[in-house]
C-alpha cells in the first residue's frame, strides 16, 4: 500500500500542506479532490518525491526518501499534467521511453499494445509535438502504462500516479482513460488520481480524499465523502448531490445560491 504520514510542505514561507496523512490501497482507485490551490497536486508531488516535505511516505513498505530512483520506477509510474518535449520524438519513441527502466523482451510489441489501449494505434509514426493536447496526454498515458504494464508483478502491486489525467480530454476519452485506470486497479494495481471532475470521481473512485486549504477534510468511500455539507464546505459553494434513476451519482453545484452567500 501507499502510506503518507504527517506530510508538511512549505514552498518558501508559505505552508501548503499541514500534517496531511493519506493512504491508498492496491486494487483501488483512490481520488484526491479539492478546490484550486487546496494542495492536491502538491500532495501528489510529495508522494512521488518531486518536492521537499517533512513526514514519511512509504510505497509497498519502502520509504521513498531512501529508495533509489530505479527501485521506485519499477513499482510506480507518474503521469504529469502536461509534458512538453524538447526534441522531435515520434509517438513510438516517446512511449518506448517508458521502457527505459525495464527489461521487457518485446519492447516494440509493448509499445503497440500500450498505444492500442489508449486508442492511439496507428499514431506510432506521428511526431509528438504535432499532436493535440489531448492526444499528447494519451501518448503520455501509454508511456506511463508501459512502464508498469503488469498491475501485479512478483506478488507486488504496481502503482499509477495520475495528475489530472482527464483535464485535457473530451467526454468520450475522459471515460476511456478513467476506465483504463479503473481496470488497472481492478486487476490488483494501485491508482492514485488527482481529479477536478467530481462526477467522474463519483463514477470511478473506490476511495476519495477531500482536501481543503492544505488539510484532508475526509478520506473515505465515495458515498461518505460526496455529501452536500462536506463538499459545500470544501468548495465554498452550495453543492447538491443527486442520484440519477440509473445507478451512479452525479453532483450539481447549486449556482443560484452562490450570489446569496
Amino acid at each position: 500500500m501507499l502510506k503518507a504520514q504527517d506530510i508538511t510542505v512549505k514552498l518558501g514561507r508559505v505552508e501548503i500542506l499541514h500534517n496531511v496523512s493519506f493512504e491508498a490501497h492496491p486494487g483501488q482507485l483512490t481520488a484526491i479532490v479539492g478546490p484550486n490551490g487546496s494542495g492536491k497536486t502538491t500532495l501528489l508531488r510529495a508522494m512521488t518525491g518531486d518536492i521537499e516535505y517533512s513526514g514519511q511516505v512509504t510505497l509497498n513498505g519502502r520509504d521513498i526518501k531512501t529508495a533509489r530512483a530505479w527501485e521506485l520506477a519499477s513499482e510506480r509510474a507518474v503521469l504529469p499534467q502536461a509534458t512538453p518535449l524538447a526534441f522531435p520524438f515520434t509517438v513510438h519513441e516517446v512511449v518506448r521511453l517508458g521502457l527505459t527502466n525495464g527489461v521487457a523482451a518485446d519492447k516494440a510489441g509493448l509499445v503497440l499494445r500500450a498505444l492500442q489501449r489508449v486508442g492511439l494505434a496507428g499514431f506510432e509514426g506521428r511526431f509528438y509535438q504535432e499532436l493535440s493536447g489531448g492526444e499528447q496526454q494519451r501518448v503520455q498515458l501509454a508511456r506511463v502504462l508501459s512502464q508498469v504494464w503488469e498491475p501485479v508483478a512478483e506478488n507486488t502491486p504496481r502503482w499509477l500516479f495520475l495528475d489530472e489525467p482527464v483535464s485535457a480530454l473530451d467526454i468520450g476519452h475522459q471515460l476511456q482513460v478513467m476506465q483504463i485506470a479503473k481496470n488497472y486497479a481492478d486487476a490488483g494495481g494501485g491508482v492514485i488520481a488527482v481529479m477536478h471532475d467530481l462526477n467522474l470521481t463519483a463514477m470511478f473512485a473506490d476511495s476519495i480524499a477531500l482536501i481543503s486549504e492544505g488539510s484532508v477534510l475526509c478520506q473515505a468511500a465515495p458515498e461518505t465523502v460526496l455529501q452536500d455539507a462536506l463538499l459545500s464546505r470544501a468548495y465554498q459553494c452550495t453543492v447538491r448531490v443527486n442520484t440519477p434513476p440509473a445507478n451512479g451519482t452525479y453532483l450539481l453545484p447549486h449556482a443560484a445560491s452562490v450570489a446569496a452567500e
Binding site: 512521488t48 507518474v78 504529469p80 521511453l97 527505459t100
Partner: peptide
Amino acid sequence: ARGLNGLALGEAAASHMGIPV
C-alpha cells in the same frame, strides 16, 4: 544516453522513469 533521453521529458519525469537525475 539513457539519462539524456529521460531528461527530454523533464527532470521529474526522468526521475520517475528510474534515472538517477
